[in-house]
Amino acid sequence: MKNLPNLAVKQSLSTLSQVVLLSLVWLLASRLSHAYVPEIPAGVLGMFLVLAALALGWLPLSWCKSGARWLLAEMLLFFIPATVAVVQYPQLLGSIGLRIVLVILLSTVLVMTVTSLVVDAGYKFEILLKRRKRQHGVL
């Protein structure tokens, strides 16, 4: 029982150091993006760097897994400050705001309908392909 808090501290320290590691990758990526490829945002460039390092085996998954899980789980917290910026746009209250909400609702329904029907069709096609492959295999 005495070891339990110890373990929790160890785990949070390892998560913290992994968050620092991912932050360093992001800083490196923003330097690289600034200097060589301004078309690719730093975050996306950093993501591809980590993806490549994982695929090539240069970076063990256990070195970044819990840090990544924490960053993604708490992501909502990170964009709250940006949403508060809406106080600088008082003109958004009233008719304009209502129209914006309407645009978002209608567009969301459209995206949901089209995407899910296309993916459902794609899934049926995948099954068809698999079945055909199997039949050819038998022949």
């Binding site: 991912l22 932050s23 992001w26 996306v44 950093g46 993501m47 993806l51 990544a68 993604l72 990170f78």
Partner: peptide
């Protein structure tokens, strides 16, 4: 920023 990297 780091959260975007974490998507990897």
């Amino acid at each position: 920023g780091p959260a975007t990297v974490a998507f990897a």
